[in-house]
Design a protein around this nucleic acid. Structure first.
Lengths: 131, 131
DNA sequence: CATGAAGTTTACGTTCACGTCACCTTTTGA
DNA sequence: TCAAAAGGTGACGTGAACGTAAACTTCATG
């Protein structure tokens, strides 16, 4: 347990495991999306296991169409273990807001889908009348 | 008929009629999306009536979500092939591609929604056990 | 201990679809 | 005729998310 808890890795391994490039890791770190890797005096960073999951979560959120800036506003909710009622209340608030945004996105995405489908159907009808 | 056939206009009029800016006209021309306006020795361009329709068609395709690069691959079909069948077939292909992306996004967005709902429920349970 | 792989910082390059000067030439209208 | 309006060209700006090169330091291995 002790080993698995404080096993640290350097940027190359972290990047490979999260399927991103070291450049991306540094970029995200500069944006504060992932916690700064501890420096071992030598200047090299050391990252904990958890950071892999964090990078993967960022990737998931990106796939949802969120910008890195938007991700920055919510990513900590996934990894900070908030203590105290105030903190949790606030997290809950933010989650609800996040959910609302997600619902809104769902709606507009469905809207967009039906538009595209409409275009396709018009094309299909056009082909029928011509065939 | 003769008049309407070779009535030529300068970039300002063209732009106004197509509801774009002269900058956009030049940009599209540089990309080959519209045929180069004839130069009258003075260096000024003269565009035929048809170019208005071409700009409008570009706008329509943009509204469908096609990039200017994608539009470049099909726009000539609308004006070379009078039936427009080839063009529409190709646009249809592209739209299907876009639709596939949209569907994929919808799926992951729904997944994400249920994750967020899970978080909220966990918080609610936490509040219940504490209240 | 020597070397090559890996890591660090700095900083410019890239894509998209134009906007916005700047500076010069041509056209138009009173 | 002469100033204002319009046009032409070149080049830099925008914003997001990194890629890539350069020049140097540190790590790991035979």
């Amino acid at each position: 347990m002790i080993d698995s808890v404080d096993r640290m890795m350097r940027i190359g391994e972290l990047a490979k495991r999260a399927k991103v490039t070291p450049r991306t890791v540094r970029y995200y770190e500069s944006l504060g999306l992932i916690p700064p890797g501890e420096r071992e005096g030598s200047g090299q960073h050391r990252y904990p296991e958890q950071t892999v999951a964090r990078l993967q979560k960022i990737d998931q959120l990106k796939a949802l169409g969120l910008s890195l800036e938007e991700i920055g506003k919510v990513i900590h909710l996934y990894f900070d273990d908030p203590s105290g009622k105030k903190a949790k209340t606030k997290v809950l608030e933010m989650l609800r807001g996040h959910l609302a945004e997600t619902e809104a996105q769902l709606i507009s995405l469905k809207q967009f889908r039906s538009e595209v489908l409409g275009h396709i159907k018009r094309f299909e009808r056009w082909f029928e009348t011509k065939a």
